[in-house]
C-alpha cells in the first residue's frame, strides 16, 4: 500500500522529474561541450526546462485554459505563471540571438568556434604581449 502511494507520488510529479532531467542535460551540455554553438543549444534546453517548471505549477487539476467565460463555475489554470514565462521566453530568444550573433563574429575573427582553439589563440596573443613587453624592457622600445 505504501509502495503504491510512493509510486503515485513519483508519477504524479512527472513534470518536475522531467524538468530536473532537462535542466541538468542543458547545464551539462553548456559546461561539457567545447563547441560554442552547442553551448547555446544547451543553454536553450536549460531555459526550456524552466519554462516547464513554471507551466507545471500553473496547472490546476481539471482547469481549462484561462480564458474568460460567463460561466462562474469554470475552473481555470493559473494564468500568472504563463504570463511570466512568456516574458522569460522573450528574454531567452534575445539571449539566443545575441549568443548566435557573437558566434558569427567570433567565427569571422578567430576562424573557429571551438572553445579550446579560441583559448589557445587567446593564450598565444597574451604570450605575444608578454614577449613584446620583455623586449621593450631590454631595448627601451617605442611606447605606441
Amino acid at each position: 500500500m505504501e509502495q503504491m502511494t510512493t509510486l503515485t507520488f513519483v508519477l504524479g510529479h512527472m513534470n518536475y522529474w522531467l524538468f530536473v532531467v532537462l535542466m541538468m542535460t542543458g547545464l551539462y551540455i553548456v559546461v561539457a561541450r567545447g563547441n560554442l554553438l552547442k553551448k547555446v543549444v544547451g543553454l536553450n534546453l536549460f531555459q526550456a526546462a524552466v519554462f516547464m517548471l513554471y507551466i507545471s505549477m500553473g496547472k490546476v487539476a481539471g482547469g481549462t485554459a484561462p480564458i474568460f467565460t460567463n460561466n462562474p463555475a469554470e475552473t481555470y489554470s493559473n494564468p500568472l505563471p504563463h504570463v511570466l514565462i512568456l516574458t522569460a521566453i522573450v528574454v531567452g530568444i534575445a539571449t539566443t540571438a545575441l549568443g548566435l550573433a557573437l558566434i558569427v563574429r567570433i567565427n569571422e575573427t578567430y576562424d573557429t568556434i571551438e572553445e579550446d582553439e579560441i583559448l589557445a589563440l587567446d593564450h598565444a596573443t597574451a604570450q605575444k604581449e608578454i614577449d613584446a613587453v620583455a623586449k621593450l624592457g631590454s631595448d627601451g622600445g617605442d611606447v605606441k
Binding site: 535542466m23 547545464l27 553548456v30 560554442l36 553551448k39 543553454l43 536549460f46 531555459q47 524552466v50 517548471l53 513554471y54 505549477m57 505563471p81 522569460a88 528574454v91 539571449t95 545575441l98 549568443g99 557573437l102 558566434i103 563574429r105 567570433i106 575573427t109 578567430y110 579560441i118 583559448l119 587567446d122 596573443t125
Partner: peptide
C-alpha cells in the same frame, strides 16, 4: 582587441545561467 568577443561570449553564458538560476529560485 578580438578577445573582447570571447570575453563577451563567456559572460553571456555565465550571466544567462545566473539569471536562469534566479528565475528557478523565484519559481
Amino acid at each position: 582587441d578580438r578577445r573582447a568577443l570571447s570575453a563577451a561570449y563567456d559572460y553571456l553564458i555565465l550571466g544567462t545561467i545566473g539569471a536562469t538560476f534566479f528565475v528557478i529560485g523565484l519559481g
